[in-house]
Amino acid sequence: MRHLDVVGLTVIYGAVRAVANMSIHLDEGETVALIGPNGAGKSSLLLTIAGVVPARSGSIKLRGEDIGSASVEQRVGSGISVVPETRDIFAKLSVHENLLIGASLRRDAAVVKTDIDRMYSLFPRLAERRKQMAGFLSGGEQQMLAIGRALMARPKLLMLDEPSLGLAPIITDKVYETIAELKKSGTSILLVEQNAERAFGVCDRAYIIQAGRVTLEGSPEELAKGGLVEQALFGRAAAGIVRTSPQVETAQ
């Protein structure tokens, strides 16, 4: 069953067409990656699905139901959670409060409590720092906390925006291990990445996105074959793109 179905979505910021007539979909339990350079419109797409950025046109369906006019709160309620690119943990709240606030719409206090314990066993570093203000965490810990906070909502669709951005490789490994575990547990995941190699290691399918459009779609195997990704991304020899995604060259 189609979990998420985005058809002909257009998002405009001022005079900039960030997302142009884009269509993507995600099946139940699937992990799908959106790969592309900076400014390709990946983050705008996520934020539009989450409801904090308005769409100019197009439709967004969640399990067949049109959520295009639903409020952010309703979308969170129907199972959409975001880990934004900037992480946006609440620096002045304690680690514990950051996790609690992830469960803002849940009414099952007892289960929330066991879920928090689960987060602490998933990320032991957070357990050690539960009473500290989240602003004092390291970049990697903040990423863990942002993921933990999103998971506290028990999302059916988890959207992760560049979870490896600015992290040391060893921390990125840990983040991707976590994503692999979540995938195993059946959560549908929409993953935005610049690092195609990383994304291919975990996703079932990927879209290559450039200048607000989908330019290529397929399984990691198909895309890795014959340098299709490089062709799509560098075919028009955009110097800026080469500079921002050196990892893609090693994707084969």
Partner: peptide, 17 residues
């Protein structure tokens, strides 16, 4: 704590419901 969260980052506060 929800008040502190809205104060610090209203958009993210909405995104967690």
């Amino acid at each position: 704590y929800q008040m502190r969260a809205v104060s610090e980052n209203p958009r993210m506060a909405r995104l967690v419901g």
